[in-house]
């Protein structure tokens, strides 16, 4: 079973593309892109255990933090830079996004929605910081540093003059087509420099 977000990202990416996956985790997405789309991909990952898994999958990966190597790449080095489920874990969002948009012709961002209906319910009726499928962590062990909604992200792109070329919204493994900021637990955006 391929994760829906991976499937959507693989559908977006054109065959033979050159891809940089920032925060590539266990390398499953890169491996999928290599097999299905004949992509030339490489990843950056900080967790040693995930690095070992990447090596087991046979994907190229370098251990490091997401923002460690932007300066070695010239403009538009990659067809796609992917930040799937990783952007909310970086401190300097603006720098990471603007650099990604510089070195990549397009940037694909996948983020969890901190304001979907389940999260809002838990916050409002239970008075607790939400724990949902897309936000599985407790307040004390979450790696997430930024807490944003899909709407927040769209507003951010508008403010910064970033074009959202395409957006896909998901909830529990299905696509969400309306009231996305309420019903979707995560979103995938295809961004281009404005």
């Amino acid at each position: 079973m391929i994760r829906l977000d991976y499937e959507i990202i693989a559908d977006i990416i054109e065959p033979g593309s050159k891809v940089l996956d920032l925060g590539c985790g266990d390398g499953e997405l890169l491996s999928l892109l290599k097999q299905k789309k004949d992509c030339r991909g490489t990843g950056i990952e900080i967790s040693p255990e995930e690095i070992f898994k990447c090596m087991e999958r046979g994907v190229s990966v370098a251990q490091g933090s997401i923002d460690s190597d932007f300066d070695v790449y010239e403009d538009k080095r990659f067809d796609y830079v992917i930040l799937n489920e990783s952007l909310q874990q970086v401190l300097n969002i603006e720098k990471v996004l603007s650099e990604s948009l510089r070195i990549g012709k397009k940037v694909i961002v996948g983020i969890p929605n901190f304001c979907d209906v389940r999260a809002r319910f838990q916050l409002f009726f239970m008075g607790k910081v939400p724990v949902t499928e897309s936000l599985p962590y407790k307040w004390y062990n979450t790696p997430n540093l930024r807490f944003l909604s899909l709407k927040d992200f769209r507003d951010f792109c508008f403010e910064k003059g970033i074009n959202i070329e395409k957006a896909c919204y998901l909830s529990e493994g299905r696509k969400v087509l309306w009231c996305t900021n309420l019903f979707a637990d995560s979103g995938i955006f295809v961004l281009k420099r404005g």
Binding site: P48, I51, M55, S60, A62, Q63, V72, Y73, R77
Partner: peptide, 14 residues
């Protein structure tokens, strides 16, 4: 980093 700059397929593990 220098290898990446030259588009070499490089993996790095610490």
């Amino acid at each position: 980093r220098a290898l990446k700059a030259n588009d070499v397929d490089v993996s790095y593990v610490e």
